[in-house]
């Protein structure tokens, strides 16, 4: 049986508005990052894969099962939506148990799996806590636990780290990486750091189209020799911003250490430096729109 998600010529419309344009993707086992700004179409794409939206045109198959037969796809897909929540008055265990029944798990299986999963997401001591009493990070971890409750082959997580503190974010990313060892995990985010820390394969969406698909390494390679740093005065910064894409700034007294993208060395004091995913992402987004300076 196929272990990949195949998306062919997918177009998605909301009324007359086109949300996805001719998407072609192959997603294999492991972490797959879906990167793009807000409104790029990431959530729409994930909802189509999770059978929450009927595709308008094209083909989508999940491990060999067409999304035209949602009942079949739902058996092998776990989903953590962007606005994750559960019945607030249920305890953590009750919520898991309820969703376990909806996933078709027998009582024996639920009794066996739920404690194990709660331990895996470090919520074993909170199983009697009401959902409304959980912190944001705990809720997200519970979200992951419920999504893999029925041991799905595919896990879809939509913007999972938004609103988490740095420690929780790191813990959450590590958890996703562990889970991805045995299944496809699609991580949708607009936070480049999440992708950098977890994914090797990614796709970048912009205005409903895939503008990049490949490895993070290749994406970074596209920007090699195009990332510079320079210490300039605050007055010069405005001029630099007009001509180049500034990806970061660090204030140093009256001066600013600026990091920016340029096709070739713009001035003598600019130093070439190693590119990161964020640089590469910014380069890609602006190159796509023809907004690169130099």
């Amino acid at each position: 049986m196929s272990t990949t998600i195949e998306i062919r010529n997918l177009n998605q419309y909301y009324g007359r508005k086109q949300a996805l344009r001719d998407i072609n993707l192959t997603i294999e086992t492991g972490m797959f990052g879906l990167l793009g700004r807000n409104g790029a179409g990431k959530t729409t794409l994930m909802k189509v894969i999770a059978t929450l939206l009927p595709r308008s045109e094209g083909e989508v198959s999940v491990c060999g099962r067409s999304t035209l037969r949602p009942q079949e796809v739902r058996k092998i897909v776990g989903y953590l939506p962007q606005d994750f929540s559960m019945y607030p008055n249920m305890t953590v265990y009750e919520a898991m148990d309820y969703l376990g029944v909806l996933s078709g798990l027998s009582r024996a299986k639920r009794r066996q799996r739920i404690p194990r999963l709660l331990q895996r997401v470090n919520l074993q001591d909170d199983k009697r806590k009401k959902v409304k009493a959980l912190s944001g990070g705990m809720k997200r971890r519970l979200g992951i636990a419920q999504a893999i409750l029925h041991n799905p082959k595919v896990l879809i997580v939509d913007e999972p780290t938004a609103g988490l503190d740095p420690e929780e974010r790191v813990r959450f990313r590590n958890l996703l990486c562990e889970i991805a060892e045995e299944r496809i995990v699609i991580l949708s985010t607009h936070i480049v750091g999440d992708i950098e820390a977890t994914c090797e394969d990614i796709a970048v969406l912009d205005e409903g189209s895939v503008i990049y698909q490949g490895t993070v390494t290749d994406l970074i390679a596209m920007t090699e020799g195009k990332v510079y740093t320079a210490e300039i005065s605050k007055r010069e910064l405005e001029a630099l911003k007009k001509d180049y894409i500034v990806t970061s700034m660090l204030t140093l007294g009256n001066n600013v250490m600026a990091r920016f993208l340029a096709e070739e060395r713009p001035f003598a004091s600019a130093k070439l430096c190693e590119a990161g995913v964020e640089d590469a992402y910014m380069y890609l987004m602006h190159a796509e729109r023809g907004e690169l300076g130099c």
Partner: peptide, 12 residues
Amino acid sequence: AVMQELIYTRRC
């Protein structure tokens, strides 16, 4: 409770 999508994606 924003539970709709969680339930919708189950096999039940």
